[in-house]
Amino acid sequence: MKKLFKYRRTGLIGSPYKILVLNIVAWVIGVLWITPFIGIFMTSIKPFREVVLHGWWTISPFTFTLKNYVDALFNPMFSLSRGILNSFIIAIPSTVIPVTVAALTAYGFARFSLPIKKYLFATILFLMAVPQQMTIIPIFFLLKNLSLLNTYLGLILVHSSWGIPWITFFLRNYFSLLPVELEEAARVDGATDFQVFRKVVLPLAIPGIISASVLQFAWVWNDFFFALMLIFDPDKMVVTQMLPRLKGQYQVDWGLLSSGSVIAMLAPLLVYAFFNKYYMSGFRGWAMKR
């Protein structure tokens, strides 16, 4: 495994011209990507007056203030801190459940033979292409009939089932990269199928599992549509639902809105940063197949 990475890296280093081009491309994309974020961040630490009078990109006058953050977090009407808490309540189970289920499913797809495996897998991939908006009406009525509308559990179930297909796809590819001999060795050593999975496959697939979890967590956290459709009690709303409400009724408070956005971004950002190491190696492992 290690050798392959090394080979790839020396391939990139190959010619200085290539490095230059790659660097330019990477920097351009990076700067474009981060520009809106910088704008929002600057707006969030300025007083409202300066934003309205001089625009959000001006460096002078520039007065540093944290008032926007304090206001956003403790807004008496729509408490952002309550939204963050709700987001965690939704996002954590909505990550753990689908990753667990999908890991088992993916292992089945990767290693066991069953009659219509190919078609089953193709169906899963195919249905992944269906947009959320097309499914929301049946989902809405389903949850209504189950009396799960406007509950944490309902939203968690919807997010979980939405996550299972792509995580299955992702992890199946990851599992099929692991050397089969290790699993065979474990079988000869006396392990049952489940022990093989738990003691050999799972520990080796940790980078892949973490990558999938991070992506799923960020996806659920950032989701607006499902939450908007399925949760309407202000006390249960997630942070992405709280944000537009910070806008205010009669005037747009840019400071409040941008500081709220920064706060809402914080959780997925921290998760990325914390698991960065695994996350990267998970993707490298995944990409290695081709």
């Binding site: 050397p179 001999e181 065979e184 060795a185 079988r187 000869v188 050593d189 049952t192």
Partner: peptide
């Protein structure tokens, strides 16, 4: 395999 009481050494040792 687990019930055959065999030991096996693989080509790449696994």
């Amino acid at each position: 395999p687990r019930d055959r009481n065999i030991g096996m050494v693989f080509q790449n040792w696994a």
